[in-house]
Nucleic acid binder design. Structure first.
Lengths: 167, 167
DNA sequence: TACATTCCCAAGCAAAATAGTCAAGATTAT
DNA sequence: ATAATCTTGACTATTTTGCTTGGGAATGTA
């Protein structure tokens, strides 16, 4: 599992979808506008999410996306690994031949770590996220935003993500 | 914190250094040969490790690197964040202005996740890794390898890493 | 002093991944 | 018929990664 903005976008979009569940199918255009993600990029992400049955789609006018299962059953880890595909063929991938056809020194460390993070992320469901107060507050703001304001401005540059971020 | 092969290289090299601690300063050339990492790349990584005082260096003949603190006091998380520098200026970095100058929907999720992974990795010391049976076995093999064998061959392509890896 | 050995540092570079655009189509409600 | 919406694939720009090159600076040994 990798942890990049790609996975973040996917989780953000899925959470948006969850929050508006019950309003019928949600269009990607809506999500793009509310979450500030490019529509075409969302299309790519949702293509992968659909292949993993995390979302279901309805075409045509009034169509859009809905969750493939209930929000309690969709976990953050699933969403991230759905979009990240992680075909890292540069190292051992479970085979024990990382170095000179034998196992590298830290082989097991990375396996363990991978499992740990994966299991952590797979305990957090979309429903859990929706239950968070801070999430609901932001969602409310987004829903009641004057959408016209978006046409004129472009997003400030002075941002940066609190991604898995240390230094 | 990012989790890439860069951090893996750094941890592998630091672990090699720990395992040969007590033999006096270890040269990067030795580590490069044992672990199959390019010497120049190691130099770059160790430059950063040195700036964070994770290693100490001695120049000149007979010189090399040694641990900056004892193996019990150096944690995997430190090593990874030392080399990854993580100047991700594309999103919010702790400021709460990820989207349109306000907080994005999953802001807290990524903060929490970051902290979780960071604290997991910061519980694992180099000493812990050295105590693992599998690590000692691989280290023994590497130490007793016929080094001449390396001159002729090039590493097989059929590898791939078990990095944080899901799919 | 010469010199080999080692660390140190900066520039540059190819390949891959990321983030995104663009264009064409398929499906379906109205 | 038409417009809204998903679906797909190709293409592009930028960044990161992993690595090379080429020079240094320090220092033990002869």
């Amino acid at each position: 599992m990798k942890l990049t903005t790609k996975g973040r976008y996917a989780v953000t979009a899925m959470l948006d979808l969850s929050l508006h569940y019950g309003e019928g199918p949600i269009t990607l255009a809506d999500i793009a506008q509310r979450q500030g993600i490019s529509l075409s990029y969302l299309e790519q992400l949702f293509s992968r999410l659909r292949k993993k049955s995390l979302v279901a789609s309805v075409r045509g006018p009034g169509g859009g996306y809905s969750l493939g299962k209930s929000a309690e059953e969709i976990f953050v880890g699933e969403v991230i690994s759905a979009v990240d595909e992680n075909i890292d063929t540069t190292r051992c991938n479970g085979a024990h031949n990382c170095q000179n056809n034998e196992r590298c020194l830290t082989h097991d460390l990375w396996s363990d770590l991978s499992n740990q993070i994966y299991s952590y992320l797979n305990k957090i469901s979309l429903q859990d996220l929706m239950d968070r107060k801070a999430v609901r507050e932001v969602a409310d703001r987004q829903d009641h935003a004057d959408h016209d304001e978006l046409s004129g401005l472009d997003i400030s540059m002075a941002d940066g993500s609190n991604d898995l971020a240390g230094t």
